[in-house]
Deep mutational scan, measured.
Amino acid sequence: TEEYTYTDKEKADRAAKEWANRGYTVTVTQDGPTYRVRVG
């Protein structure tokens, strides 16, 4: 499991979509002003 942190919702959504397109399980959680994209 890897985790990426973004401050921009659009970038987080785009990253999540790209990982999902590659067949990974993706979870996006909002943590205050940041968005965490957990992959795998």
Rank of each mutant, 00 (worst) to 15 (best):
T1N: 09
T25Y: 12
D31P: 01
Y4H: 05
P33H: 08
Y4V: 04
K11L: 13
E2Y: 14
V37K: 00
D13Q: 11
A20T: 09
Q30L: 09
Q30K: 13
Y6S: 02
V39S: 01
E2H: 15
Y6L: 01
N21Y: 08
Q30M: 11
T5N: 07
R22T: 05
Y24W: 06
A16N: 02
Y35H: 04
T5F: 14
N21K: 14
E10F: 09
Y35I: 08
K9H: 08
T34Y: 15
K9L: 08
T34D: 07
W19E: 02
T7D: 13
V37E: 00
K9V: 06
T5W: 13
W19P: 01
R14W: 10
G23P: 00
R14A: 14
V26A: 06
D31R: 05
A12H: 00
E3D: 08
P33Q: 09
K17A: 13
Y24Q: 03
R22V: 06
R38A: 08
T5K: 06
K9Y: 10
E18V: 07
N21R: 13
Y24N: 04
D13N: 10
R14F: 10
T25H: 14
Y4S: 04
T1I: 14
T34W: 14
K17R: 12
A16I: 06
Y6D: 01
A20M: 14
Y35M: 03
A15D: 07
V28E: 02
K17D: 13
P33V: 07
T27Y: 08
W19A: 05
T27M: 09
A12L: 03
A15I: 07
K17Y: 11
G32D: 03
Y24F: 13
T5R: 08
T29W: 12
K9E: 05
G40Y: 14
Y6T: 05
Y24S: 02
R36D: 01
R22Y: 07
V26P: 02
V39N: 01
R36W: 05
T25L: 12
K17L: 14
D13G: 06
A15K: 06
Y35S: 02
E10N: 09
E10W: 11
T34K: 09
E3K: 04
D13F: 14
T7I: 10
N21I: 09
V37G: 00
A15Y: 05
Q30E: 08
G23L: 02
R38Y: 09
A20L: 14
K11D: 14
Q30T: 08
G32Y: 03
K9G: 06
K9S: 07
A12I: 01
V26I: 04
E18K: 07
T1Q: 11
V28Q: 05
T1Y: 15
G40N: 13
D13C: 15
V26E: 00
T34H: 13
G23K: 02
Y35L: 04
Y4N: 03
N21A: 14
K17S: 10
V28N: 02
T1W: 15
Q30W: 06
V39L: 06
T29L: 12
K17F: 11
V28L: 07
N21F: 06
Q30H: 08
Q30D: 05
A20G: 08
A16T: 04
T5I: 15
V26H: 00
E3Q: 06
Y6K: 00
A20I: 14
D31L: 08
